[in-house]
Design a protein around this nucleic acid. Structure first.
Length: 413
DNA sequence: TCTGGGGTCCTAGGACCC
DNA sequence: TCTGGGGTCCTAGGACCC
């Protein structure tokens, strides 16, 4: 038996832990740059705020209904997520952390999975303050489905068996995990309106529409496991750091600063995982929502001659790539850096004819990273990252980093 | 004025090889 | 008039997820 434990309205719930007075009130959390609503309390959903709604479109709706609005506080959410995971992990021998607010647990062989799930829910709530819902099923896809229903019908925990026609047929096709907007339209067109109809359709028809991936989803719904638990996360193959700017950026110098900062962040990610990058890509784009303004977007990729995690090399190359795609006269909205074809740092292939990565350079970079980690970003950084950073994103109503920053601990009394 | 960020997998088609 | 068969590798684009 597989359980999916999913935090309810996760980001909103994190904020409420430290502001209990927000219980029962409409609350939303915005994406980076205070762009879109990415988490909504049940009260906010009831008012009719759609998932992903651009904030400027719902500002009046929010104001009129006393909706409390937060910028996102990923440090807080990341830490709360770790807490939830550590509680969940006590309940099952095998567990897969699927996303920041969801984990699969293998309850196979354990007695009374439903009772266990209820205890799990209670404990997480008591120890972390975060409400969760648990879905149970023979496969991951069934557990997902059960979780969806548990949320919708506010039952907390719910188990679905693959032959339970009454329950499964209540789920509309687009609510099936793996069926998105496009596929659900095409499935509905051939008469498959709900999860049960989909599960019992001829597999050839399903395959013709969505290939092997969709056929796997169909089998999973029928109780045949096709998606294994992944206890140890597979090493990442690529990583990306990109941000929209707080204001349109036109000059090359400002773009270089931003790209240097993104490159440094991306490098930190791979260094923390012990990986090296074999390639890198830089992209930039104007604001695609402004149809009346001239549009331009471009990207360029570079294969590195030797896998590296050296920020100085990456930043230098990133600036060169940016320079080659930059065009004057556009108002840029977003840029980003991708590190490609990541390999483990333990087994790297060197160069045939020359030697890179000299020891002094390595020591210098390590010292710099150490300073930044211990004394903060402003204590040590590359000149290329700039000091003014006028392009920085907007985050006007972020709450304190209650659990990860000494200066911002909540005060009692 | 204002529209997020970070991933994965699969497939089709082109370039190239013998 | 007539133009093979069998591969590999890479990339772009489409689909999905949170």
């Amino acid at each position: 038996m597989i359980a999916l434990a999913d935090c309810n309205n996760f980001y909103v719930s994190c904020e409420r832990v430290f502001r209990p007075s927000l219980e029962g009130r409409p609350v939303i959390v915005l994406s980076n740059n205070d762009g879109c609503a990415v988490a909504r309390s049940n009260e906010a959903k009831a008012i009719g705020i759609p998932m992903g709604a651009p904030f400027h479109q719902i500002k009046r709706l929010c104001g009129g209904n006393g909706v409390v609005v937060f910028s996102s506080n990923y440090e807080l959410y990341g830490d709360m997520s770790r807490r939830v995971v550590s509680v969940l992990s006590r309940f099952a021998p095998e567990m897969e952390i699927y996303s920041i607010d969801e984990s699969f647990l293998n309850l196979g062989g354990l007695p009374d999975p439903l009772g266990l799930s209820n205890r799990m829910r209670e404990t997480v709530g008591k120890w972390t303050g975060i409400p969760i819902s648990v879905g149970l099923g023979k496969t991951k896809t069934l557990a997902k489905l059960a979780n969806k229903l548990a949320k919708k019908e506010k039952t907390g925990c719910l188990q679905i068996d693959e032959d339970n026609r009454d329950v499964i047929s209540r789920v509309p096709i687009e609510d099936v995990w793996g069926v998105g907007r496009r596929l659900s339209v095409r499935l509905r067109r051939i008469g498959l309106q709900d999860a049960w109809a989909f599960a019992s359709a001829p597999s050839s028809a399903v395959r013709a529409i969505g290939g092997v991936t969709l056929e796997r989803t169909q089998r999973e719904l029928a109780g045949i496991s096709c998606l294994e638990m992944e206890e140890v996360p597979q090493p990442r193959k690529n990583t990306c750091c990109s941000r929209s700017f707080g204001k349109p950026v036109t000059g090359l110098e400002e773009l270089e600063e931003a790209v240097a900062n993104y490159a440094v962040r991306a490098i930190r990610k791979i260094r923390s995982e012990g990986s090296l990058a074999c390639g890198l890509q830089v992209f930039l784009t104007t604001n695609r929502f402004k149809a009346d303004q001239p549009q331009y977007s471009n990207s360029r990729t570079l294969a590195l001659d030797e896998p590296t995690d050296d920020p100085i090399r990456i930043v230098g190359n990133a600036k060169a790539l940016l320079g080659s795609i930059y065009r004057k006269g556009y108002a840029y909205k977003k840029a980003g850096v991708l590190l490609l074809d990541l390999v483990s740092g333990r087994s790297t292939q060197g160069l045939l004819f020359e030697e890179h990565g000299d020891g002094r350079r390595r020591d210098f970079v390590n010292a710099l990273e150490e300073v930044a980690a211990r004394y903060g970003q402003s204590a040590g950084f590359l000149a290329a990252q700039g000091v003014r950073r006028s392009w920085s994103m907007k985050r006007e109503s972020r709450t304190a980093r209650y659990t990860t920053c000494w200066d911002e601990l909540p005060m009692v009394g």
